[in-house]
């Protein structure tokens, strides 16, 4: 792309810039890392437990989705706060893209959880959804993201106002989120580990599962980072293109 007049733009208007070299380096590292994680997840031997059987491997995919979604939410909140302080468009773009990618991970988290629960917890009942507190709260969390996108589309065409108002909503949601994901699910009866003060992992969890699980969490957060950076780059190009067309 031609070095458009972006140097003439004010600091506030400038689209986000991504360090391409670092992006490529992280992408390569994530690809290699995730390949190893996937191989470990499917090939390593795990103890066979009745009913759970091989579905236990879903631990490596279902749970890291929530870590990745939380990371996305934190990044989105960080950039929303940055936008309120500086008013720079680049920060608003970053907050929005992080929320978008976070929604993707949240959606996959819900689906992997539904499938897992269908064939273990509700094995004989054939239920897809049973209002487990964590499940419900995660769905509410996704609705918050949805509301954020609706709010943004209601303010299309007023970028400054849209950025400010949606940033306030996002930060407000950040304040409420701990209740959704941590306080309430732990007070209520739930089949999820971590309910009623249980530890999330117990001493009966096989050590080999930890060996794959923790790298998987890191890998999916890395994957979030790659997708997010990619989206930010695409958004920046779109903004530049729009400017060129206008010029």
């Amino acid at each position: 792309m031609a070095p458009l007049a972006s140097a003439e733009l004010s600091e506030k208007e400038r689209p986000p810039r991504v360090n391409l070299q670092r992006y490529r380096w992280v992408r390569g590292a994530v690809v290699a890392w995730m390949t190893a994680v996937l191989a470990g997840a499917f090939l390593l031997k795990i103890p066979r437990i009745n009913i759970l059987e091989h579905t236990a491997r879903n631990l490596y995919f279902h749970v890291p989705m929530w870590f990745a979604m939380m990371a996305a939410f934190v990044v989105a909140g960080y950039h929303a706060a940055g936008f309120l302080r500086s008013g720079r468009r680049a920060r608003d773009v970053r907050a929005f893209e992080a929320a978008r990618v976070g929604t993707l991970f949240g959606g996959v988290g819900i689906v992997t959880g539904m499938v897992w629960a269908r064939f273990t917890w509700y094995q004989s009942s054939g239920l897809w959804w049973n209002f487990d507190p964590k499940q419900t709260m995660a769905a509410a969390q996704l609705l918050i993201f949805g509301a954020y996108f609706v709010l943004r589309s209601a303010l299309a065409g007023q970028p400054e106002k849209r950025g400010r108002i949606s940033a306030v909503y996002l930060l407000f949601a950040v304040a409420v989120m701990p209740f959704l994901l941590y306080v309430l699910p732990r007070q209520m009866q739930s089949l999820h580990p971590g309910a009623e003060g249980n530890p999330a992992f117990s001493e009966i969890t096989h050590p080999i599962m930890r060996v794959v699980f923790y790298p998987s969490v890191i890998g999916f957060i890395g994957l979030f980072w790659v997708l997010y950076t990619q989206r930010v780059r695409a958004a920046a190009l779109e903004i530049r293109q729009g400017m060129m067309r206008r010029a």
Partner: peptide, 26 residues
């Protein structure tokens, strides 16, 4: 927030509000 956005009240407030109020409701 919505009054500033110029879309005060209506369905949008409900959409924004309800997921945030889930913990309160429970």
């Amino acid at each position: 927030l919505l009054a500033r956005a110029g879309t005060g009240g209506g369905a949008l407030l409900t959409v924004l509000l309800f997921p945030l109020l889930t913990p309160l409701l429970v």
